[in-house]
Simulated scan of single mutants.
Amino acid sequence: MRQLLLDLLPDSSPSLDNFVPGGNGETLAALTEWLAATRPDASFCLVGEAGSGRSHLLRASGFPYVDADKNPGLLGVKGEATLAVDNVDRLDDNGQIALFALFNQLKAGGGRLLTAAIQPPRHLTLREDLRTRLGSGLIYRLQPLSDAEKAAALAAQARERALKLTPEAIDYLMRHAPRDMRTLSALIVALDRYTLEHQRSVTLPLLRELLAREATPAA
């Protein structure tokens, strides 16, 4: 669904309010407190598999954001008061040196570093001194949403848009669309626009039509 991912992402920016917590209520509460500077720790690491919401929360933090998967050397990244680094497990040698220096700079200046990775720092293939720094702060694991939680979230998002989405329609989306919440939420946005443009209600034929259209590569 290349076109969907590129052109029909949710029209609201990632925020703590539009994050679907599922079983991650404790993690979300801890992160919210830390972002409000009510906890003294200099760093906070979110651990979880792809699709668990790591990137959403890093972007929602309001910190300057960098994705080490796209910028493994952290080129041009500066440490001011705050910094969010996604996919720290993808840092190359130069990026690890840079993040080590940035961590020390932020901590010395009373700043804060928010990171995310697929595994806890102690299990990452990084420099020992960087693993130690990242492991010295708060570490919370994000659990992926269950299918039932995803379905409930889609139903709630549809209701917010006054979009009539039956359980059968949600089940169809869950079986035929990518399973991450970012894409599923994008589909709710796309459905809302599509039904308004064509003055049609949501039916299984309409869903098949929309998914087929969005799966067609752009010319």
Rank of each mutant, 00 (worst) to 15 (best):
S146E: 14
A81N: 14
A42Q: 04
Y194L: 02
R54E: 05
L58Q: 04
T125K: 12
I118S: 14
R193G: 09
E80D: 13
T195N: 05
S55L: 05
E80R: 14
R179W: 01
A98I: 00
E168H: 09
T27D: 01
P205E: 13
S61E: 04
G62V: 06
C45N: 11
H123F: 08
V189Y: 13
D129G: 11
L165Y: 08
V189A: 10
R159W: 00
R141M: 02
T27H: 00
E168F: 01
L207I: 11
S15G: 13
D11N: 13
L9F: 07
S15A: 14
Q96Y: 01
E26W: 01
W34M: 03
L207N: 09
I139H: 03
S52T: 14
Y172V: 08
R131T: 08
L4I: 11
P120K: 08
E26K: 06
M181S: 02
D171F: 00
G79M: 04
S55D: 12
L91A: 04
M181P: 03
A84M: 06
A218D: 12
A155M: 12
L134V: 03
A153P: 07
L145C: 11
R122L: 11
D171I: 00
K70H: 12
N24K: 03
L187M: 13
A84K: 08
T27E: 12
S13R: 15
G62P: 05
D69W: 10
L145I: 09
S15M: 02
Q105P: 00
S146D: 10
P178W: 06
L114C: 07
D69T: 13
T203C: 03
A36L: 01
T115G: 05
T166H: 08
L163T: 05
L130V: 05
S61T: 06
T132C: 04
A177G: 08
T203R: 04
L114E: 04
A218C: 03
L138F: 01
R159K: 14
A60F: 02
A101F: 02
L28R: 08
R2Q: 15
I139P: 00
T27W: 00
G62R: 09
M174I: 04
R159D: 15
T132L: 05
P144R: 03
D7G: 14
A29Q: 13
L83D: 09
T82N: 14
E49V: 15
L74F: 01
A169L: 06
R122V: 12
N18C: 07
G137F: 05
C45P: 00
M174R: 15
L124H: 06
A169S: 14
D129C: 07
I118C: 11
D192L: 09
L4C: 08
D86Q: 08
W34N: 01
M181H: 02
G111Y: 01
T183K: 00
A36N: 12
N18L: 07
L145P: 09
Q3L: 15
L211I: 10
V20Y: 07
A101I: 00
F44Q: 06
